[in-house]
Write a protein that binds this DNA or RNA. Structure first.
Lengths: 195, 195, 195, 195
DNA sequence: GATGAATGAGTTTTCATTCAT
DNA sequence: CATGAATGAAAACTCATTCAT
């Protein structure tokens, strides 16, 4: 229901009817209406992030880790489209309720990515001249937009199938290529950082 | 005001006070409350997209066009942070009111990007094996996430400065590196610094 | 609990928790919430009034009886401050529930007082020109106000100590004084009753 | 309406209907439901106490002042029985809303009384061995109980007629009877009847 | 007898919208 | 054109009461 009409557009009466209980019953399990959203996020967050962290640990190298993370990310959202819709919708607005939770979740995710990128730099498969703060958003942003598009389309196509082409795009962007030595952009980059 | 507390959290009374008119006066210019948002999007959208299209036309080659587009994109949002906040916030929720507008805007933007990418492929500076539908999101997603992060930070840093590093990430991901010797970006970069 | 937050401000859930039983259990002993107050008044009333009547019987003359009654009155309320608070609070509102009880209690008390006064008149220690209906209220009102003040003060001082000075005030007001023969007021009083 | 069923037992819907306006209109003039009571007390209090102070100033001596005060007190409550009911009802419960107001009003009244009593002691018509704190309550309590009884009776009889007998009771209690030959009250009484 | 989860009627409050001035 | 007082529908939330266990 939240997926269809949004959380704030849903009334307690509707939520209760949907749940097959009386209005008052809602308040036995949730402090107030907002608490429904907070608890939803808390539950889903823990569940999903545990899986993210697990899958990353299993990967041998940075490339494999990133691939597995994004595959899992897309898989989780594809599996539960309603959660995906609510997540995407509420994630963007500045509701003070879930703001902290979102910040925290976002940080966790970005930290995982940053770790992978740094490992990749050590392993020699990612460029050393990366602005880490930017690269993290670049990766997360691309993944989330892919999910957003899938949602807007009504979840009609295979979302996980997007994982590999996307990783390819991301990786070739941050991978080291043999000819990059005479790439002007590298210089520009260097200059910028010295600004 | 919408930026601070969101559109649905703002009351007609507040809006009217802010505008220095009486409550009823609002209804002489807007059909209803929702219409305020609709008209806001219509106005801002036209304004901004005209500029996007203009700037893209001026670019000589695909790389330059993409760079200018993203720079302009970030510049517009940096210039009017309140607009940026409202845009980002309302863009994500599935309010049926502005849904069509957003879809349309999003389509316009993605079409511009797609055109640039296709031109780049013809010019031989972008890979031919790109999944166009995905590349469009990949680019838009990365840009919007960069804006989101800037907003969440309170708009404290120079957003436009993110443009070139971001383009670098995007381009190297979709650029053909065997041809990077005659990289066009160098020129663009140089021109820009002379602005 | 009723003393602290009032009866209508207390919920069944609170009452049950305080009593160490489940909500439903309350309804095994009380018909409904109001019945709790009704039974409380019934219980306390009987208890206290029995004592009032007993103490009055023991007194030899009217003055002694009145003194003992007021002392006992203050003592009972001082002993159980919570009861005092609930009594004073609920006594004044016109809740139809306890209205009859209160009327009855009030009548009982006023009857005791009236009896004492009449006895005093026979004994020759109280004026004969008293408007009995008024004198009863005059006595009860003064006593209750003294209790009210004590409650408002938080029950910090010795309430019973107020008894003797108060009786002194009351008695000298209704006592016969040797010079009262040439008191103009007596005449006025008589006139008034004839109006 | 408040007089009949009490303030907390009245709903906004009822209040609005009684006032001949819509529910929402109430909130244009009152912050919330409680504010209705607060404003009522504020208004009535000022109005009535101004009159109390005025009337006291006009009195020549303590006895006359006390008589006039109590007459006016009873007259005001008799004039507006509904106000009297609400006042008596809400005055006693410990509603935190009007608690301060009541305390303040009560203090004002007691201060007026105390001043009169002190003046009477100076003038030599009141006993010098009075416990002032107690005397104040003794007087206020008796007056309020007389009002309470009148209210409980349904306001069927002449309340102001109780003033003089009551003052007689109070005065003879605190008057010095050796001096009662040149009793001041006689004059007051006479004047009043000539009004 | 005791329990306490579930109920849903009833209440306060908000706020977009209207319309007489 | 502009106003802003009045409206009343709609929503969140409370809590006395019930009843299956």
């Amino acid at each position: 229901m939240f997926a269809n009409q949004g959380f704030y557009e849903s009334t307690i009466a509707q939520i209760a009817r949907e749940a097959g209980v009386a209005d008052g019953t809602i308040y036995l399990y949730f402090k107030n209406k907002d608490d429904i959203l907070v608890q939803f996020f808390e539950f889903k967050t823990k569940q999903v992030f545990d899986r993210f962290q697990k899958i990353v640990k299993k990967g041998d190298n940075a490339v494999e880790k990133l691939t597995q993370l994004i595959r899992r990310h897309l898989k989780e959202f594809e599996k539960d489209q309603n959660m995906a819709v609510v997540y995407q919708a509420e994630t963007r607005r500045n509701s003070p309720l879930v703001k902290d939770q979102i910040r925290q979740m976002s940080k966790m995710y970005l930290d995982i990515v940053a770790e992978i990128v740094e490992q990749g730099q050590v392993e020699g498969c990612f460029r050393k001249d990366l602005y880490l703060g930017l690269v993290k958003r670049y990766i997360l942003g691309a993944v989330e937009e892919v999910i957003s598009t899938w949602i807007r389309s009504g979840g009609k196509y295979d979302l996980v199938a997007m994982a590999d082409p996307l990783v390819d795009l991301l990786i070739r962007g941050i991978g080291i290529y043999e000819l990059s030595a005479n790439n002007f952009l590298g210089d520009v980059q260097t200059k910028k950082q010295g600004e």
